[in-house]
């Protein structure tokens, strides 16, 4: 089989066909999320709590936002066959830049500064991966180290101040729904549109599926990877802005304490996206994020030991991916 023979099938947007099938991983993920919600509701109710109380719903949703934004970005790079381990430090730096710029300037300049920083980091990641041919794992680990040094050298703790007007993003809600969820929805919709409805998106799936074949069939794989990294960093920038509005200041450990690097990858994979690239999508990722948030909330309600939580999370992640692997094998 020559590589060129593969070309047509690579370029054909398979997702459009698959979307309607029940075997679409995203459907499975949302079903799983529904099961988790029902189980969580049952357990919490038996324990004497109220799962669907207003405060609890708000908490679950607002806990989705930061991880959701990062995971949506992470989906874009993972789909393209890359990976981003620098997201945690970019979040930290993003909150610091946002808070400091907003303290002296306006909210708009703060947002622009964060987005500019994100584009720069995403571009750097993309160029190191494609230009220097450094494996994405190492490349983004390297950028993470560089960002970390920059943060530790320049900041000795929380810095800056977010104006009250900007804090509405983090604290306001409509009924039980935090307004920040609309930020996540908008970013996710944009990412969904790009990956599923544009040429760029098809190129991303093609590059992630088989880079070699994609290149031979005329996809500019390097450019695609670079753009995917920029998209990822922009999503991370949005997460940093949300966290800045929530924290009211920038914090050097905003991204690292929560391990957004590994958590986001876990959420993406939990959402049915293949780590090797080429399969999955943003919709599944959101389901994965929701599962993690609901689990967290149930643990909170039951006052589960935080160390035990990690055990359960580890088991859930492995078990979920093992299930996908089984399903994938059967339908293949």
């Amino acid at each position: 089989m020559t590589p060129t023979a593969l070309a047509p099938s690579v370029l054909k947007p398979e997702p459009a066909r698959r979307r309607t099938k029940l075997t679409d991983p995203a459907v499975g993920v949302w079903l799983a999320a529904a099961v988790v919600i029902v189980l969580g509701w049952l357990i919490v109710t038996i324990d004497g709590g109220s799962f669907f109380a207003r405060a609890n719903l708000t908490t679950i949703l607002s806990n989705c936002v930061a991880l959701g934004l990062v995971a949506v970005g992470q989906s874009a790079v993972i789909l393209t066959g890359s990976l981003d381990l620098s997201v945690a430090y970019l979040i930290s730096l993003g909150t610091l830049v946002a808070a400091e710029t907003m303290q002296d300037g306006s909210v708009v300049t703060g947002i622009l500064a964060v987005l500019a920083l994100s584009i720069a980091v995403g571009l750097a990641n993309g160029l190191i991966v494609t230009g220097l041919k450094v494996n994405a794992f190492i490349a983004t680990l390297g950028t993470a180290f560089i960002l970390r040094g920059w943060i530790e050298d320049n900041y000795t703790g929380p810095a800056g101040q977010v104006p009250a007007s900007f804090r509405h993003l983090g604290y306001d809600r409509i009924g039980p729904i935090p307004v920040s969820i609309f930020l996540l929805a908008a970013v996710a919709a944009a990412a969904w549109f790009i990956t599923r409805r544009t040429r760029l998106g098809h190129h991303m799936y093609a590059t992630g599926g088989d880079e070699h074949a994609a290149r031979l069939s005329g996809v500019r794989t390097r450019r695609t990877v670079v753009i995917a990294h920029i998209i990822c960093s922009l999503c991370v920038g949005a997460a940093a802005l949300f966290l800045a509005s929530r924290l009211g200041a920038g914090a050097p450990w905003a991204g690292t304490e929560a391990r957004y690097d590994l958590e986001s990858i876990a959420a993406v994979v939990l959402g049915g996206t293949a780590l090797a690239g080429g399969r999955g999508g943003v919709a599944g990722t959101l389901g994965g994020v929701l599962i993690l948030a609901v689990l967290d909330s149930v643990f909170n309600q039951l006052s589960v030991d935080p160390f035990f939580k990690n055990v359960v999370r580890g088991v859930v992640i492995i078990a979920a991916v093992a299930l996908y692997a089984r399903r994938g094998r059967r339908s293949a």
Binding site: F307, F308, N310, I318, A322, G328
Partner: peptide, 30 residues
């Protein structure tokens, strides 16, 4: 888990990391 259950090793070992750290500290109370 990686071979028989076909879970990518990145995920297997990431999960194992969470499980081990969690279990050890749960056992020792931190």
């Amino acid at each position: 888990i990686t071979t028989a259950l076909r879970v990518p090793s990145f995920i297997t070992t990431l999960g194992m990391m969470l499980i081990l750290e969690g279990a050890v500290f749960y056992w020792t109370g931190g």
